Simulated scan of single mutants.
Amino acid sequence: MNVAENILEKADALFNKYGIRSISMDEIARELGISKKTIYQYFKDKDDMVYQITRNTIEKDKSEFEAAMKQSGNLVSALVQMSKCLRENFNKINPSLIFDVQKYHPQSWSMWMDYKNDFIFNTILNTIEKGKTEGIFRQEINAEILAKFRIEQVQMSFDEKIFPRNKFDFKEVQLALFDHFVHGVLTPKGLKIYDDLTKPKGNA
């Protein structure tokens, strides 16, 4: 790992733990045991750091998404793996970090929204459309509406104003919403595959 990567890794950990706005460049330098001047040799300012962290996170998430899709044996499995990736990636993020990016780092927020509304949306959309041709997803559903709904459903579950963490378990909320979603879009054939995938091992 080179110096720039090491700085980004430490900054990412601090931002995720405490939020972006509450962490200064001095604190990042102190945690790394280097001077603030050294940080500025690699990054223009904190906004530049946030942008590069966001870009790296998106590229990592894309790779995980694509790997999960390739490992899926069928389209229902692909949908399950896709939702697992979304759940795990969102669960790593501190809600205050999302708020700070949205409010104080517009370029990074725009990049994140493009990723969500382009890459993730089209991946879900294409899965549903293909599943309809294979008789796994219901023919009458509007794939575009349901793909958008699924993305917002994941994001909604992360909103502490709707599902406060002191009352709801994040994973439980995600699994409940996903189960509700698949029962609304799958045909009996698709539901049979889903039940086989999610049935606890050892059951008949």
Rank of each mutant, 00 (worst) to 15 (best):
N56C: 03
A147R: 03
F168V: 11
I53G: 08
I98C: 09
N56Q: 06
I58M: 01
K44Y: 09
E9H: 11
L79N: 05
L86Y: 11
N126H: 10
A67I: 06
M49Y: 03
L191R: 09
A29D: 00
E134H: 02
Y104D: 08
F90Q: 11
A176V: 13
S77E: 15
K192N: 02
K171E: 12
L14H: 03
A29G: 04
G33Y: 02
N89H: 11
A67D: 11
N2F: 00
L186K: 01
R165S: 14
S157V: 11
S77D: 15
K130N: 08
G33M: 02
T54P: 06
E134C: 00
K103Y: 10
F119D: 10
S77V: 15
H180L: 15
V185F: 07
I124P: 00
D179I: 01
K130P: 01
I23Q: 04
I162C: 07
S72R: 01
E31N: 13
D100G: 04
A68Y: 02
I53D: 12
A147G: 01
M82V: 14
M25I: 14
N6W: 05
Q71K: 15
I151M: 06
L191T: 08
N94E: 02
Y42E: 12
A204V: 14
K44P: 01
R138P: 01
D179F: 07
I34D: 08
I20G: 03
E160F: 11
K171C: 09
E172R: 08
K70R: 15
D159A: 10
Q139I: 07
N2Q: 07
I120Y: 07
M113A: 08
I128M: 13
D45T: 03
K84G: 09
I120R: 07
F65A: 09
N166H: 13
N74R: 10
K167P: 04
E66S: 08
F15H: 03
K192I: 02
A29F: 03
N94A: 02
E152Y: 15
L8G: 05
W109D: 09
G131E: 05
Q71Y: 04
R87K: 13
M113Q: 09
Q174H: 05
D169W: 05
H183K: 12
G202Q: 04
T127D: 02
T57V: 00
Y42G: 07
G19R: 14
M25E: 05
L175K: 12
V182Y: 01
P188K: 05
P106Y: 09
K199S: 11
F149K: 06
G19V: 14
T198E: 04
I136R: 00
E172L: 12
V76Y: 09
I28G: 03
L86H: 12
K10T: 14
F158I: 05
V3S: 13
L97M: 08
T133I: 02
S72H: 05
E64S: 06
S108H: 01
K130R: 12
V185M: 08
E88C: 08
Q174E: 06
F163P: 04
K10S: 13
F65L: 14
R150Y: 11
N122K: 00
K201T: 13
K167E: 14
F158E: 07
Q155S: 11
T54I: 11
Y51R: 07
Y194G: 04
D12R: 11
V154A: 11
I39H: 06
E152T: 14
L79I: 14
L32Y: 07
N16S: 03
T187W: 00
D45P: 06
M111A: 12
K201L: 15
F181D: 03
E144S: 12
G190Q: 03
